[in-house]
Amino acid sequence: MIERKRYVTMKGHRGGLAVYVNERCSVDEFLDDLELTLADKSVENGRAVPITFFFGRRYVDEGVVTAVESIVARHDSFSFNGYDSECLTKDEAKALYGERTFHYFGGTARSGHVVDVEGSIVVIGDINPGAVVHATGSIYCLGALRGTVHAGKGGNEQAVIAASILQPKWISISDFVHEDPDDAPIKALEMGCAFVGETGVEFSRLQTVPLARMDQFAIDSERG
């Protein structure tokens, strides 16, 4: 019997199996090999072993992932537990870079100013009524925030809005817009923070922001 050339390597660890895929072979080659390997290792003991795939420096698109998933699905003794690859497309990288960029706006954003950034922003001054600040990340205002703000634009629900005095005319995070049931204007909140909670946009003093949201401060401060 001729020894089959191996393109996938299996390693066991506590959480199940890790499958390392050769970086240089063709997709068909490693899919065939995966099929045979799984068939070899199948055992009838009832419990499916989760497999995590590691593609190394191979770029995998959705088609490849679906093919891998369907092969795993054909074997009862294994289950698909996600994958990891060290490669990104330029678009993905750009999006990631944009999200991670920190911007500064020096001075007061006065009525009529429109600031729109990819990433998070620190306004070193006030945001006055009539000024508009949009960010795909978080918005931090060192002064009084009295204008129109939208954080997490594009769907980031982890984004936060914090200000020394938080009294926005209009506030929105991700796809959530704050709407007062009585249409009353927002009361000024000293050292205030807004975040997405269970009921949509919620307000709180910075000191009492839920810890889950505090993570965002940590992430943002790392970027800075």
Binding site: G107, T108, R110, S111, G112, H113, P129, G130
Partner: peptide, 16 residues
């Protein structure tokens, strides 16, 4: 008045 102050704010921004 709020309207006058907001317009003044805009003008200050433009002058600055």
């Amino acid at each position: 008045e709020k309207a006058a102050v907001q317009d003044a704010d805009r003008i200050i921004g433009m002058l600055e």
